[in-house]
């Protein structure tokens, strides 16, 4: 290519990238903007890119006079417990999938793929019916149980892909030296997959943090509400206060973004291994 032509191509490429970045960030920018706009300016300066005066009143209200800190805490408990339990179960399961050939493996893989294909809304009614006599509706443990089961198949595939990347010779050498397979697994293989486990943790945390429909169905009281449920009831209960709603939205965004930058490096591997999950 001639020089001016190449320059034009480069400029077009950077401009296109810029368009994508702007499109990706604009809604989040607007979320932030509304959350710091004082109420008296919200309507008069509706379409201005940045208000002439910013306040943190909405954050103050949400943090000190609403139930959102409680919702935040509930969501944290649910998401962190789910993430940790799933990561442990998926490490064990993924290790078995990666290192052994055993009878029924084909069917187990098929079963796990099936759980990724059918509409989960189908399970809303039966799960409610099963959990309710056990006292597990309206409780965080019930929600954790359901989320763990939903996330285990995908996480197992993901962990399997990480184990596949570690040479088998490592634990074979340890076993020749007299270690049991479980010792080799725990002391040699697990430390090597720590980054993979961190990625799994991040994926599952994000999924549990975002889940809405099952939380809506299984939780009805304020005490056990997770963040999405609290935010939606906030929208329907009062005349919508956009400032407060968006301040709460920013709070919901913070952990998700932290985990995102943490797992960003593993996105390619994660989404390719799971291939099904959003």
């Amino acid at each position: 290519m001639t020089r001016p032509k190449r320059l034009v191509a480069t400029v077009a490429h950077r401009a296109a990238i810029l368009c994508y970045v702007v499109f990706a960030l604009f809604p989040l920018f607007w979320l932030l903007k509304v959350s710091v706009t004082p109420n008296d300016l919200l309507y008069s300066e509706g379409v201005r890119l940045w208000p002439s005066r910013t306040v943190f009143d909405h954050f103050d209200f949400v943090l000190r006079h609403s139930d959102f800190p409680l919702f935040f805490r509930n969501s944290m408990i649910v998401s962190l417990s789910t993430a940790f339990i799933v990561t442990i179960l998926a490490s064990l399961g993924g290790y078995a999938m990666s290192r052994f050939t055993f009878r029924g493996k084909f069917w187990i893989v098929g079963l796990m793929l099936l759980t990724q294909m059918f509409p989960l809304v189908m399970l809303i009614a039966p799960i409610f019916k099963i959990l309710s006599p056990l006292g597990l509706t309206n409780s965080l443990s019930g929600l954790i149980l359901v989320y763990v089961a939903f996330n285990v198949p995908f996480a197992t595939f993901l962990m399997q892909s990480f184990f596949d990347g570690i040479p088998k010779d490592l634990e074979e050498a340890a076993m020749i030296d007299g270690a049991t397979r479980f010792m080799a697994f725990r002391q040699i293989i697990l430390p090597l997959t720590l980054p993979g486990m961190a990625a799994t943790l991040g994926f599952v945390f994000t999924a549990a943090w975002s889940e809405l429909l099952f939380a809506l169905m299984l939780i009805s009281g304020v005490d056990a509400s997770t963040f999405p449920v609290g935010l939606l009831s906030f929208v329907s209960k009062f005349s919508v206060d956009f400032g407060q709603m968006m301040a709460a939205g920013v709070l919901a965004l913070i952990p998700a973004c932290l985990f995102f930058f943490f797992i960003q490096r593993y996105l390619v591997q994660g989404l390719t291994a799971g291939a099904v999950k959003g």
Partner: peptide, 28 residues
Amino acid sequence: ALCFLPWAVPSFLSGLNWAMLFNPVVGP
């Protein structure tokens, strides 16, 4: 990282966020 960021936004929040952008009172 910036282009992939929307993926990390919880789906309920993306919904609320876009509902607000489409709202003539506060959205552009």
